[in-house]
Amino acid sequence: MSRQGIRRGPYDLAVVGGGIVGLAHALAARRLGKRVVVLERDAANVGASIRNFGFVTVTGQARGAQWRRALRSRDVWDAVAGPAGIASQHAGLTLAVQTQEGLAVVESFLATEMGTGCQLLDPAPALARYPHLNPEGLLGVLESPHERRVEAKHAIPRLTRWLAEALGVQFAFGVNVRAVDPPRVETSAGPIDAGAVAICPGSDDTGPFAERLAGYRLSKCKLHMLRAAPLPGTYRQTAAVMGDLSLVRYPGYASLPEAAALTERLEADPGAGPALAHGIHLIAVQSADGSLVLGDSHAYADAPDPFQPAEVDDAILNLARATLALDDFRVTERWTGVYAAAAGRENLIDRPRDDVRQVVITSGTGMSTAFALAEESVGELFAGDPSAHPLPV
């Protein structure tokens, strides 16, 4: 994987951006037998793709195409994780419900097609199965088998390495793309030949065809995350944990009529109200070393500031204390991430010309939906269906 020179080509597809969306495009194109180069401006992937939970979320995604993309992307993760040496930290979701209004949302959700395979557990059987949940105030647990969790900061480099070594994808790091006019792509390392280009800029709105992104009225979302070492003992999560606030955050729940009453209840709650004001809903996942990744918040701006207010982190930790069977947390890492956002839109595939696609996930669901979205984009470029082809290994 080059960090200095770059092979001129020719390539069938040049991918601009080495985050999860770019990697997903490389995989989809290789399924069709295409020659692929990935051009990443940084020396390594340090963006949003490694600053997340690594939580492949299905349950709660927006009903319809987005939910189906999550199911498909989950299946792709299952297919590539083993060959790429990516460990699955745990599977499934446990959503701890602590309000009657939350129970009504869950019961409504289970009546939809999205509830297939999920169930609502009463407190006693839920705690017997998931003793890491806080029993105080627990009214029930929505259990889903659909989710997966990988360690993002390890999974993205390993997926990159596997694409290069096993699938023959060419990578060039530290390379800026200056102009895109297939079959010519101008880069800071010289021109390359590529028949088609997929631009996967993440939250960067300054690259080729950036002027077109302005028409989508994109903003940026800053989020807070923490890593906490658990207290000594046998604490072990077997699935990701969320709570009532997730039911008014994730559109697959929040779009249900019953969610309005839950929102009103949470806004009036002294503990939940401040969290809602910061766009916080709890996600807690556990890493192989026993540490917990906790988050997250959502603050929207055209240019998010670089600061991490303590009150936001405190609110996340308070939610974790109320939901998990742990009294306190020793925080070992704190970080922020930034992703592209657009009101009322999960993603976009922009088409500047027939041989160029500009693909942005605008809902913070890159790990959950990128593989499926890339299959749609690459399928358009090459008039094929990547999902119909096995992995070329």
Score class of each variant (00 low, 15 high):
1 M>W: 14
9 G>Q: 02
10 P>E: 02
10 P>Y: 01
11 Y>G: 02
16 V>T: 09
18 G>Y: 02
21 V>K: 04
25 H>K: 08
31 R>M: 01
31 R>K: 04
35 R>Y: 03
37 V>W: 03
38 V>C: 09
39 L>K: 02
40 E>Q: 09
40 E>S: 06
42 D>K: 12
45 N>V: 15
47 G>A: 13
48 A>N: 10
48 A>R: 07
62 A>N: 03
62 A>T: 05
64 G>K: 00
69 R>C: 00
76 V>S: 03
78 D>S: 09
80 V>W: 01
80 V>I: 10
80 V>C: 01
93 L>W: 00
96 A>T: 12
102 G>C: 08
108 S>A: 15
110 L>Q: 13
114 M>S: 12
122 D>A: 15
129 R>Y: 03
130 Y>Q: 11
130 Y>K: 11
132 H>S: 13
136 E>W: 10
139 L>T: 07
151 E>M: 10
153 K>L: 11
155 A>P: 05
156 I>K: 13
158 R>L: 15
158 R>T: 01
162 W>Y: 09
168 G>V: 01
169 V>M: 05
169 V>I: 05
179 A>C: 14
180 V>M: 02
181 D>E: 14
186 E>A: 09
187 T>I: 15
188 S>T: 12
190 G>S: 05
196 A>C: 15
203 S>R: 09
206 T>P: 02
206 T>S: 13
206 T>H: 09
207 G>P: 05
212 R>H: 10
212 R>T: 11
214 A>L: 13
214 A>F: 10
214 A>W: 07
217 R>N: 14
219 S>W: 09
219 S>N: 12
220 K>C: 06
234 T>S: 13
241 V>E: 03
242 M>L: 13
243 G>P: 07
243 G>D: 15
245 L>H: 07
246 S>V: 05
247 L>F: 08
248 V>E: 10
254 A>H: 01
259 A>Y: 03
259 A>L: 11
259 A>T: 06
262 L>Q: 04
274 P>A: 01
276 L>T: 04
277 A>G: 08
277 A>D: 05
279 G>L: 00
280 I>S: 01
280 I>F: 00
282 L>Y: 05
283 I>H: 05
288 A>F: 08
290 G>M: 08
298 H>N: 12
298 H>V: 05
309 P>S: 08
331 V>C: 07
335 W>K: 11
343 A>E: 14
347 N>V: 00
351 R>N: 10
356 V>G: 14
366 G>F: 02
367 M>R: 05
369 T>I: 07
371 F>W: 14
372 A>F: 01
380 E>Q: 09
383 A>K: 14
384 G>W: 02
389 H>T: 09
